[in-house]
Write a protein that binds this DNA or RNA. Sequence first.
DNA 1: ATCTGTGAAGCACTTCACAGCG
DNA 2: CGCTGTGAAGTGCTTCACAGAT
Lengths: 211, 211
Amino acid sequence: MEIPSVVIDRLPLYARALATLDSNGREVVSSQELGNHLNVTPAQIRKDLSYFGRFGKQGRGYNVRKLLDELRRILGLNRQWRIAIVGAGRLGKAIAGYEGFTPQGFRIAEAFDSDPAMIGSTINSLVIKNTEHLETVLSENPVDIGIVAVPADSAQKVIDSLVRCGVRAILNYAPIAAHVPPGVQIKRIDPVLALQGMTYYLKSEAASPRR
Amino acid sequence: MEIPSVVIDRLPLYARALATLDSNGREVVSSQELGNHLNVTPAQIRKDLSYFGRFGKQGRGYNVRKLLDELRRILGLNRQWRIAIVGAGRLGKAIAGYEGFTPQGFRIAEAFDSDPAMIGSTINSLVIKNTEHLETVLSENPVDIGIVAVPADSAQKVIDSLVRCGVRAILNYAPIAAHVPPGVQIKRIDPVLALQGMTYYLKSEAASPRR
DNA sequence: ATCTGTGAAGCACTTCACAGCG
DNA sequence: CGCTGTGAAGTGCTTCACAGAT
């Protein structure tokens, strides 16, 4: 069955809320309550989960631990994913140093930069390599995911290189609309676009987005 | 008329592409060509624009400069927006130092942190103030937008403070599902959620998202 | 009595397809 | 003849509402 990608994008949200509940010792939760935490309707949660199976108990709700495990399995979070980060400027360093990836099974395995002053230095005991050698390095030691944190004018080139090395998921921090061949996923992280989508509603006094 | 928020979110994309075309000296562009750059269908671009007026010339296309000006006006980008950033750790510093905000009319006007070692130091000649004094400072010197780059466990508190100071748009980098009252917009920037939404498709060999 | 799982209905966004203008 | 602007058709996601399980 073909599952809507909006559904897939909500699952990590559910998983995170469940992880919090679990670490608070919570054993059971209803779609109602989970929805309250996340600003999602209970019906949507139930419908989303129903694409993958029947995980709840009628009259009771969901076992937190069990549902969390199921979601992790569905999303493929029960294994390690190797990441290469390209661009080790201020932003790249902030990303590489972020502790939030590790507990989720993401491991930054390679880092690249084109600035000679940067190459050879380390972030979190990870040696920064020359972007010129990216394809050589990744051919011998492949990664699953690429994170692009280079300036706009070199981003597409970097993305093409990653794709040639078999990377099939890219997180792009550069402010460009990048092109990738079919079968390769790319998501954009772009604070300027996010802000510009909000100023529209700030303009006109009372207006606010429907969703 | 009530304009779909997906439409509003695409306008900044169009504006950026037009700005690039404009700086390349391009004077006219068709919805077809603009769509090629952005991976958006021409019909969608035309429909989106039609919510706001008739900006094109049949048989010719759109005047790049004129359409760009219109979009800037629609989105409210023809003025300065004052931003407060809360959290001046690695991430906060990277955001505050990002040069991409300024040319778009976003000005980081205040920065806060709760770490005594940080308070008083500067980023880009902006003095970092104590988060404890956030409400006092912003009451006297209001901002339009808040950027939250603090750890998960203090994010909701910070967001509540910003809302009390009249901030009606928040960009949240903290990994929590935050709550805001109606009339306040919040957008999340969360690399972990973005990655987790991609691993689902990496798992099963050939699968790839429909969009 | 409560809460899930789910067809069916409803709603919102996208795409079509073509009249009309330059 | 090319390309916009736009009703209408199509598609896909969300919400409803209730049977059924505990």
